[in-house]
Design a protein around this nucleic acid. Structure first.
Lengths: 235, 235
DNA sequence: CGACGGTTTGAGCGACATCAATCCCCGTGG
DNA sequence: CCACGGGGATTGATGTCGCTCAAACCGTCG
């Protein structure tokens, strides 16, 4: 358990949209300059410490978010109190699509590391989306991406032995990472992600280290032996 | 394994859209009469026998589908050949949203029972969607629904003991079914849905029968003891 | 220094997988 | 009509992977 801080504490000032590195890749790519002036105003940027909740299940907010850096876990809870991580949002991902349909947030969104996000009113997207085919398509793409992720979690991360699941998770974490390295999650989060216990996660990771499947360079930072992991992942 | 027949064999004539019971609930709800005339033409209706594949992973087709009756499973495969059912589509659900983004189908879609579907070109939705805010919103709703389903499968159907998963699955199958009854899937499909073996599925169902948690009225048709199943599902 | 949260490791047990035999239902052909 | 065959469901026996409970370890922070 990590304690949460309020969003208010995380406020880090007006967003620097115009110079935002994400501008061309993110939700508003393809907007005209004049549209762009209209949207700058209500956008705030936040800087979340590890463990901070961006929003919580059932909350009604009129805000959507884009992730600038870092990562958040999207968590759902079962009646018995156990939790399951259903997705991880990283750079350029959009959070809170559900508020476009006036629904409350469907998950707890919690920062896994230090994480920067931009917050903007869903109103903005609703208005612009009506008449902008480009934004319309962009939105569909976002949804499709989330859905593909969700399906992959089911087939890759919730199927097979613990060794297989962890191998697949590692490969996923390091994907599009040239050096084949990545930050490890806490063992508890691994468990919630893969549907196994923290002890099993710990044991498996430890075992992978001993077998040379991964090398710890700094605390919790590892380099993967891709080929061997892939062999484990696939059968 | 059930053999597949081609779609061609399943063709059952021009769709009767104007009198379709789904007209008001389905994708095209809210279209104007004039729009409606434009779309009737290219719509075909199919009648799928159990085991028929509506489409397959990786196929490129320009068609989307609505389910009129029956049910289809959406299946994905792992490199090692094992399969996982990631969703079930039933009455009024829309299939093939991904082709709106010019992507190939992401699953095998296979009829679980005798199933009626309507097929229409994605082109239609692309064209109408550009300028129709209503359709735009309807599409987002569809996507959101699929995503919510996907998340629920992860938290409810891939978490906990086999007994819990099967209980949750049964409650799901019978949901919005006044008599608390439902058709059972094959044990193999249950396994692929819950990430357990067919033997475990079989044993658990048999055990539920003995315990009076479900009563078989006709072969593979059961009435559920909702209260007791819920108790099992929740802890 | 002690306390605390997370990780690792151990021992034992139980749930589920595996392998295999039997049963049951139905359709098919002699 | 019945024997036969095949596919799915059921049941059993056995092994094992991962859960559970518990202790020890480790780094950090007060």
């Amino acid at each position: 358990m990590v304690k949460s801080v309020t969003l208010r504490e995380a406020w880090s000032g007006e967003a620097d949209c115009r110079n935002c590195a994400l501008r061309t890749t993110v939700l508003f790519a393809g907007l005209e300059e004049e549209d762009f002036d209209r949207i700058h105003d209500p956008i705030d940027q936040f800087d979340l410490r590890q463990g901070t909740a961006l929003y919580q299940t059932g909350e009604r907010g009129d805000y959507m978010f884009t992730v600038r850096s870092g990562a958040l876990k999207l968590v759902q809870y079962l009646p018995d109190g156990s939790q399951r991580i259903v997705r991880i949002a990283r750079g350029t991902d959009v959070l809170g699509l559900e508020v476009l349909l006036d629904e409350p947030y469907q998950h707890d969104a919690i920062a896994l590391q230090r994480t920067e996000v931009c917050r903007f009113p869903a109103r903005l997207v609703k208005d612009l989306g009506q008449n902008s085919p480009k934004l319309h398509k962009e939105l569909m793409t976002r949804w499709q991406r989330a859905l593909t992720e969700a399906d992959a979690w089911l087939t890759e991360l919730s199927t097979g032995s613990a060794r297989q699941r962890i191998a697949r998770m590692l490969l996923r974490l390091a994907r599009d990472n040239a050096n084949h390295d990545c930050e490890l999650l806490s063992r508890e989060d691994m468990g919630a992600m893969l549907g196994i216990t923290t002890e099993t996660a710990s044991r498996t990771i430890a075992s992978f280290k001993r077998e040379g499947l991964l090398t710890e360079t700094q605390p919790n930072h590892v380099i993967l032996n891709i080929a061997s992991l892939r062999r484990i992942a696939e059968d």
